[in-house]
Write a protein that binds this DNA or RNA. Structure first.
Lengths: 236, 236
DNA sequence: ATCGCAGAGTTTATCGATAGTCTCCTTGGA
DNA sequence: TCCAAGGAGACTATCGATAAACTCTGCGAT
């Protein structure tokens, strides 16, 4: 029953990962306060542990730490989404180009594998909502695309940006339906160009793919009442 | 005497910043163990506070956290330095280019100011060692160069990479003497090109500047006994 | 002489409690 | 009616203590 038995990781690590997944998969909304007592009860650990998890998330800029006022999830912001997307466009295509130029077999293999897994995972779940497994497979797919670039730091960095972007995607889940087929075709196009070692075409395809997602999100955000992005529901 | 009075920040924040400065300015060596009890005594705070600071540094990859074995400073590695430099070359010139293209007056002003400050700060201190004030001014200068790019995320990201690189510089401080004049000239060249809005020339100059620093470090590292990079002095 | 195991000492991870802050609501006065 | 001071309640930041894990050393067996 000891900590070691329950997964080989520290309690803080477990809480960190759970919270991180909650954020990425949209189970906690933007701007929401993260109150220590509630989390302590939820996870059955002491405040110290929750604090460590939140501190780490704050360092990753997924939550914000306000001195003497605790933690809250990073708020939505159109400007940040645009900034984030610009950066992702540059860095993610950079990693893809590098991967293609190096063209290692193990990289190609992992791309094919991730693409296959993604292709076979349904986009929406039974209840019509965004499928968490799809989000995960999608993330793995994008990760695989850049994983052959040979730079651990670039890989990690791109991964962090992608996770931040994932927050925005999750929070606008209602976009789920309207372009499933496009997305599939886009993924196919990226993979085909990548396997053909056509760096220009592949990165153009990836560029378009990322940009289109953000544009959809922005359009979606514009439709909603803007107040929605500001108010904090304050419930977990 | 309360926490608020002593600087307007939390204890954890203060410890974090002090340790961070110690790392960047080379007062703590690579690979060194960071034992909780010693730090607790040094800062006169409780373990919780030290842990928070270390956790944040770990999230920034300046220290590494080994489960049940505490924290230690990130170890030196030639591969990492090379990886880091490649990334810096790409991202720092990217930020500079963007800044030049936007060409805001406030950016130009801050570049001129930072350059002036750097120019007037001696490279070595009285005892012949690397001057901490110069390191700070140098960092500010590089920060200023990219500060007009318009992307908060890119600025932060480049800053983090630069700080990581600073670790390597600090740990090889003996290179202090041999090329002071070159460095001055390089800075001048970057600034001149930047103020002339010549993005190509400016980023080429910055590229050479960063690359040359790393090459010097690598040459320096090769001279030393490689064992030096591995053993951990185990003293603070 | 080497290997492995047991125990002491050291260090880390976690807890429960406390002191310090902030927020919001109430109350009294202009 | 509106504003300000004051206080209750809620929450955070920090502490000291405890339990768990690791490391190192010495001893005995092969």
């Amino acid at each position: 029953m000891s900590r070691t038995k329950s997964g080989g990781q520290s309690r803080a690590e477990a809480v960190f990962e759970t919270l991180r997944a909650d954020l990425i998969e949209g189970r906690i909304g933007p701007g929401e306060r993260l109150k220590l007592p509630a989390l302590v009860e939820r996870f059955g650990v002491s405040m110290t542990v929750v604090r460590e998890a939140l501190t780490r998330l704050a360092e990753q800029r997924m939550v914000i730490a306000a001195p003497n006022r605790g933690f809250s999830v990073i708020p939505l912001s159109v400007e940040d989404l645009e900034d984030l997307t610009r950066l992702r466009l540059r860095l993610e295509t950079m990693a893809l180009r590098d991967s293609i130029e190096r063209g290692e077999l193990s990289w190609e293999t992992s791309v094919v594998a991730a693409h296959h897994a993604l292709d076979r995972t349904p986009y929406v779940n039974d209840t019509g909502g965004l499928n968490v497994a799809w989000m995960c497979a999608h993330r793995n797919f994008h990760h695989a695309l850049g994983s052959g670039c040979g730079s651990p730091r670039l890989i990690e960095l791109v991964g962090n940006l992608r996770d931040s972007a994932e927050l925005y995607r999750a929070w606008a889940r209602s976009i789920a339906h309207d372009y499933e087929r496009d997305v599939r075709a886009e993924h196919d196009g990226i993979v085909r160009a990548a396997l053909a070692h056509d760096a220009d075409r592949a990165s153009a395809a990836l560029h378009g793919h990322i940009e289109r997602t953000t544009l959809t999100l922005l359009r979606h955000a514009a439709d909603q009442t803007p107040a929605d992005a500001v108010k904090s529901p304050d419930r977990r």
